[in-house]
Simulated assay, not measured.
Amino acid sequence: MPSPHKLLILYTGGTIGMQQSAEGLVPAGGFEARLRAEQQAHPERPVPHWLFRELSPLLDSANMTQRHWLAMRTTIIEAVEEEGCDAVLLLHGTDTLAYSAAALSFLLLGMEIPVVLTGSMQPAGVAGSDAWPNLFGALAALQGGLSPGVQVFFNGQLLHGARVSKGKSEAFDAFGEAQRPRHGQRLAALPANLDYRHPRHVVNLAVLPLYPGLQAAQLNALLASGVQGLLLECYGSGTGPSDNPEMLAALHEAHERGVVLAAISQCPQGHIEFGVYAAGSALAGCGLISGGGMTREAALGKLFALLGAGLCQQECERLFALDLCGELAD
């Protein structure tokens, strides 16, 4: 792939640019000047021509919301279509970096440029920090030419944007690709309503891990909150409390009124196969669709992109089961 001619660096906040306050580390502006000074101090590093934008307000990524995903999407589209950018480096906090990478993987379908997310476990300027190695490593990877799509660069590795998860809270090798079985039918052609240009809106989504003792009343309260999509984190290959008729009825009734119900495995290396156990078949009978070997981040981002595009329940379910960008199949 060719080197980019004009790169957007989109700074959203996060540890990489944080500075110390009386309460602890907080997002700080002025990062463009710090980046240019670091680049000038090391002219031997391969860096494409870039322009700089900041998300306003800057975020601790623990405060990330769907609206911020949409703001990132809008900024990237404007940079590509109005300013001629042909690559993007997005600087992001690590707490929700994998969620944003997954969401953008689906929000930017059809955009034929590379988008790379990176951040750091320690702020730039701290002795021994991973901030500059991650940032300039990502720039070098982009300069070398990357395929279109969303990726994460961290600790010297390029990772698939819709497969990555954060596995460690302090170590520099905090991110990795989930080792889940990957098989699924690929989408033959991208429909217009999934193209990155198609408008998106905020969606009421919920994630619920199944656990021993979960009550039907708790599930009903969640479903009664107006959720449009519910992601259930099931046991093993897609099982749940099949001997609880009230819980099964709550799921069935929610599906009947249009809620999209999806399932992933709680197991770090698991995937959904409802038919293996009768307990899984009972959940499938309530209207749950399989998320295969998708991670929580990928499944949530995919539901957001599908429902946020205004698709009906049936179309969301059809597309959720297909591989859109490598989240389900190699």
Rank of each mutant, 00 (worst) to 15 (best):
17 G>E: 12
37 A>N: 05
210 L>R: 03
107 L>C: 06
21 S>H: 11
323 D>L: 11
202 V>K: 01
157 Q>W: 04
201 H>Y: 06
32 E>H: 05
174 A>K: 02
240 G>Q: 13
123 P>C: 11
80 V>G: 00
224 A>H: 04
206 A>L: 01
19 Q>D: 15
127 A>R: 13
43 P>E: 06
39 Q>A: 15
262 A>L: 11
218 Q>Y: 02
158 L>H: 12
245 P>V: 15
233 E>G: 06
142 L>V: 13
14 G>Y: 08
133 P>Y: 12
306 L>A: 11
120 S>D: 09
55 L>H: 05
50 W>H: 01
86 D>L: 07
32 E>N: 04
326 G>D: 07
214 L>K: 04
156 G>V: 11
220 N>L: 12
43 P>A: 06
53 R>A: 15
39 Q>M: 14
31 F>M: 03
126 V>A: 07
216 A>H: 00
172 F>Y: 05
20 Q>W: 13
98 A>I: 04
214 L>M: 05
24 G>F: 08
31 F>A: 02
300 L>G: 01
200 R>Y: 01
273 E>G: 01
270 G>V: 12
38 E>S: 02
20 Q>P: 01
113 I>G: 03
157 Q>A: 13
86 D>Y: 01
36 R>P: 06
220 N>P: 00
306 L>H: 06
249 A>Y: 00
20 Q>C: 09
226 G>E: 04
24 G>D: 09
107 L>G: 05
111 M>W: 01
143 Q>L: 09
214 L>T: 02
239 T>S: 15
155 N>V: 09
174 A>H: 06
178 A>F: 08
45 R>G: 09
245 P>I: 14
245 P>D: 14
40 Q>M: 12
277 Y>D: 10
66 Q>A: 10
194 L>G: 03
129 S>T: 15
157 Q>T: 11
237 S>R: 09
93 G>M: 06
88 V>S: 03
285 G>I: 07
274 F>G: 00
152 V>H: 06
273 E>S: 10
211 Y>C: 08
292 G>I: 08
323 D>A: 11
124 A>K: 05
142 L>T: 10
266 Q>P: 04
195 D>P: 00
5 H>Y: 10
32 E>A: 08
128 G>R: 07
294 M>I: 13
215 Q>M: 05
246 E>Q: 15
129 S>A: 15
320 F>H: 07
155 N>Y: 15
311 L>W: 08
